[in-house]
């Protein structure tokens, strides 16, 4: 057994366009890996996990770094947009504050200055921050493949994305007026650790009493259970009370599947997830 300090040997390739990315992927087949911000990929390469002889750097690829609102009010966030840029964006803060919040709370300044939203989502490493928020915001994601591209709801990404696909951008619809949001995450060191579990909520209320519509994204759970549809159904059309929030939170925690990790058991994480959902909904209610 050896503890390696060095990154294993590879060739770094720097395509300029999405087309070039696919021609490189086609040429090197399984021998190439995509490299976005690099904070997670380099970590794994140093541990000799998934190391490949060719690394395709995406930093120079044009068309992956848009951050703009279209005429239709849809926010486009390119896959290579840095997390810090999203957190700092006045447009995101104004129209999709939940996304700005989760990006601001993700990792550390260094990680946010290096990490991209696409990398964060695609590598499925720290799914407890960006992905729950994107789900709650009903984001769509554009996936490019060698033969073309598709747009799918972000919550289906885990089914739709193939290993030779490239996630190119997220599309966030404009939110109804007066919509409320909440996000809570649990981490031992809140400003350092990636969230163990988290909950993102987008809530639309009638007269400040009844839940007209709600989406709840869960973090720290398996990808297929990240949208807490059961909990959403409990809330929809009901007068929002502490009791109903507790019931929804319970349903969300039951529906979110998770395993134990080095630090915490699945049982504990489930209890904390319930607390986070409850608090995120309450935060949205008072938003």
């Amino acid at each position: 057994m050896t503890y390696y300090r060095r990154v294993p040997e590879f060739d770094y390739l720097a395509p300029k366009s999405i087309g070039e990315v696919f021609s490189l992927l086609g040429r090197y087949k399984g021998d190439a890996t995509l490299f976005a911000g690099g904070t997670i990929a380099l970590h794994q390469m140093k541990e000799r996990i998934g190391a490949r002889p060719y690394v395709i750097g995406l930093k120079g690829v044009s068309g992956l770094d848009a951050l703009a609102v279209g005429k239709d009010g849809v926010l486009t966030v390119g896959a290579m947009v840095l997390l810090q840029r999203i957190a700092d964006s006045a447009e995101v803060q104004g129209g999709w504050p939940l996304l700005a919040t989760v990006c601001r709370l993700l990792g550390t300044p260094q990680i946010r200055n290096m990490g991209t939203i696409g990398g964060n989502v695609a590598i499925r490493f720290s799914t407890a921050e960006t992905l729950p928020a994107l789900i709650a915001l009903r984001a769509q994601v554009r996936i490019a493949a060698a033969g073309g591209e598709t747009v799918v709801p972000v919550e289906n990404l885990y089914r739709e994305m193939k290993s030779d696909n490239l996630l190119t951008e997220f599309l966030l619809p404009a939110l109804p007026k007066g919509v409320r949001m909440g996000y809570r995450k649990f981490a031992v060191r809140e400003h350092f650790d990636y969230a163990t579990v988290g909950a993102a909520v987008v809530l639309d209320m009638d007269d400040g009493k009844t839940c007209k519509d709600i989406t709840i994204g869960l973090g720290g759970v398996t990808l297929p259970t990240m949208r807490a549809k059961g909990a959403e159904e409990i809330m929809k059309g009901r007068t929002v009370t502490d009791d109903i929030i507790a019931k929804a939170a319970e349903a969300a925690a039951e529906g979110g599947h998770m395993g134990s990790d080095v630090m915490f058991s699945a049982g504990y994480k489930s209890k904390v997830l319930k607390t986070m959902v409850e608090r995120a909904i309450k935060e949205a209610v008072s938003d």
């Binding site: 060191r189 400003h191 080095v262 630090m263």
Partner: peptide, 29 residues
Amino acid sequence: LMERNVWDPKTGRKLTSTFRTYKVPTANE
């Protein structure tokens, strides 16, 4: 409050060898 070492009972290997897994305090604590 935070620092916990864990060994894998199946391999005898320590699982908490990084600052990510072995949770020493940061300035925020």
